[in-house]
């Protein structure tokens, strides 16, 4: 079927296919979600290269990542060629600057939206860095909350503003605006420092160990996503996991015992954002001064 979106004809297929069988949520429901949420999600995907995480058979199938735009793109989809050192060739990344492109991506099987941390005006300078608080199956969500608060404590000492969102039903992301003033390396180093100081506050529950076996039953404070070409599910993105949870921006005052991230789903997040507004806009603000932050931390 073809729908008309802002003067573009978007061709959609298999809209009745169940993407979340247990939750009875179809591909059409996913398209409808992003159609209604475009206004909110737009600032976080605009002008950013998109890694396509495709689940064309729904969430029960692993799916795959694809960076190069597929053949036969509709005319409303824009791309940007970016040189890949590893493949020694140019990759055509999709740039999602209109609703038609977002729905086109959904139709390719993108349940989750994965934009770069930097935009096309300055691909080498991220707009923010993220500490991804990623628990092991043995950690309670209370421990995840403690970890997020410890990250905030370190950032508060540095007098760096920070914003929290749910990642899916189990983890949290803490974003810090950088205003594209620093390179990826500088962003990574500072996020490494924040993660290290957080881990030192919570040595019993948190780890910076990449290897799963060495990490054991600890929460992974992942700062290594702050590299060129890496992506995380953006604010308001759905996650391809049972329950159809969505990445929900939070007020810091909500990050406390009793917070249940599984409550933010394809069904509930649209109502919440209408009521609360966009809690994440500061992430794209002017950004912190890392030198001042280091000074505040005692460097």
């Amino acid at each position: 079927m073809t729908i008309r979106v802002d003067k573009h004809d978007v061709f959609l297929t298999n809209q009745n296919k169940l993407y979340f069988p247990a939750d009875k949520i179809s591909k059409g429901d996913v398209v409808a979600y992003y159609d209604s949420m475009y206004k909110w999600i737009n600032p976080y995907i605009k002008d950013r290269p998109q890694s396509l995480r495709r689940n064309p058979d729904g969430i029960l199938n692993e799916g795959f990542f694809q960076k190069d735009a597929p053949e036969g793109l509709p005319s409303y989809v824009k791309t940007v060629p970016i040189h890949s050192d590893s493949g020694n060739k140019d990759i055509d990344y999709i740039i999602c600057n209109n609703k038609a492109t977002l729905l086109y991506m959904n139709n390719l099987g993108c349940i989750e939206i994965n934009p770069w941390f930097s935009n096309t005006r300055h691909l080498d300078k991220p707009d923010y860095f993220v500490i991804d608080i990623d628990p092991s199956p043995k950690n309670s969500f209370e421990e995840v909350i403690e970890a997020a608060k410890a990250v905030k404590e370190v950032l508060d000492r540095a007098k760096a503003e920070s914003y929290c969102k749910t990642s899916r039903a189990t983890g949290l992301h803490v974003y810090v605006p950088l205003g594209a003033k620093y390179t990826y390396d500088e962003a990574k180093d500072f996020s490494h420092l924040v993660a290290m100081m957080t881990q030192e506050l919570l040595p019993d529950t948190c780890s910076l160990e990449r290897s799963l076996s060495k990490r054991g039953n600890k929460i992974y404070l992942d700062y290594l996503q702050n590299r060129r070409g890496q992506t995380l599910a953006c604010a308001y993105s759905l996650r391809p996991k049972q329950g159809a949870s969505a990445s929900a921006p939070l007020e810091w005052s909500e990050v406390k015992k009793g917070l249940h991230p599984s409550q933010f789903t394809v069904k509930t997040l649209p109502k919440r954002v209408e009521k609360m507004g966009d809690l994440f806009s500061g992430v794209l603000g002017k950004g912190i001064d890392i030198r001042k932050c280091l000074k505040n931390l005692g460097a």
Binding site: L193, L294, A299
Partner: peptide, 9 residues
């Protein structure tokens, strides 16, 4: 790490 970063900045 802190002094390294400060230095390079």
């Amino acid at each position: 790490l802190m002094s390294q970063l400060k230095e390079s900045l």
